[in-house]
């Protein structure tokens, strides 16, 4: 269980994390979503005591990270896979890590096996690809068999096999009753692995909901109707409006209906004796919902190009 209470981080007059309050529950995968620069990594770093909060608290199991006697046995984290001495082997790196928290050195071989790096155990980490470094970082997170796990952009640098593997790993860790927080700047990644979503933008909490609530709340679908006769558009729009739907009449000759199923729209057209050339349902993707939610909070967006 990770608990954030009014967590705030400022650098000078720039607020990077702004009054964040949310809980990350055990037994679920919580997706931590936001554009680059939204404050996800800083938040995770504050949970680990690497950065000091300007105000507020970040607690693990009700305690600060630094007050845990054997922190690696309670919290495993992958923040920056390349934060290693490049000249040390994978195995020695994990061995030092195990010693630092009185973890049984036999775990080193076990976690290397689990992440598929057993063959590379004696290689210096400076020779690792980003994907291998990510796997080693995950091995480190698992080393102390902790109840809380945090992964910052874990699929970076992984091939499709690796991405699939991460998804399954996250699911199985949560199924074992662990608390799993995984960050990403891509909705599509979390859509498949998260039970819950916490969305932030410019350091502020934008959404904190179960994935299906989030879909219900943001993933609205619309019905697009094409009618050959221009006059019929108006007639159908009026009828649908009377029945409680919200109707748009865009210039391209279509009719866009919100809040009514395609079946009911089709039935209404049939009852009026109108000819239809198209009737389609379009679901706004979660990606779209996420983009709309975080629009205006993107830190390093490309400037809109101005036509010349």
């Amino acid at each position: 269980m990770i608990t954030l209470r009014a967590l705030t981080k400022r650098y000078g007059d720039k607020t990077v994390v702004d009054d964040l309050t949310f809980d990350v529950e055990p037994g679920t995968v919580t997706g931590f979503l936001g554009p680059n620069g939204a404050g996800k990594s800083t938040t995770m770093r504050m949970v680990l005591g690497l950065d000091h909060p300007t105000s507020g608290q970040a607690l693990v199991g009700g305690r600060t990270y630094a007050s845990l006697r054997h922190p690696l046995r309670e919290v495993g984290a992958l923040l920056d896979a390349k934060a290693l001495h490049p000249g040390r082997t994978a195995e020695k790196n994990l061995l030092a890590m195990a010693h630092s928290n009185d973890v049984d050195p036999a775990r080193v071989g076990e976690v290397l096996e689990r992440v598929g790096l057993a063959e590379a155990a004696r290689r210096r980490t400076g020779t690792f690809s980003l994907g291998m470094s990510q796997r080693l970082g995950i091995a480190g997170a698992l080393l102390g068999d902790p109840g809380v796990l945090m992964f910052d952009e874990p699929v970076n640098g992984l091939d499709p096999d690796g991405v699939l593997w991460i998804r399954q790993l996250l699911r199985s860790l949560a199924a074992e009753g662990r608390t799993v927080l995984v960050s990403s700047h891509l909705m599509s990644e979390l859509q498949l692995s998260a039970d819950r979503l916490v969305v932030i933008g410019k350091g502020r909490l934008l959404a904190d909901a179960a994935l299906d609530e989030f879909i219900a709340g943001h993933g609205t679908s619309t019905v697009h109707v094409r009618l050959p006769a221009a006059g019929d558009r108006r007639v159908l729009a009026d009828r649908l409006g009377e029945r409680g739907a919200e109707v748009e009449l865009p210039a391209d000759g279509e009719l866009v209906v919100h809040g009514m199923s395609a079946e009911r729209v089709g039935d209404a057209a049939h009852a009026l004796g109108l000819r239809l050339h198209g009737l389609t349902t379009r679901s706004a993707s979660l990606e779209q919902a996420y983009l709309e939610l975080t629009a205006g909070t993107v830190e390093y967006g490309a400037a809109e190009s101005v036509g010349v």
Binding site: P71, A83, L84, H85
Partner: peptide
């Protein structure tokens, strides 16, 4: 200081937060 040039200080302080 080598821990700062390799970035491994972040790992070290995660292992030993005191």
């Amino acid at each position: 200081a080598g821990e700062y040039s390799t970035g491994s200080i972040r790992s070290t302080l995660q292992w030993v937060p005191v």
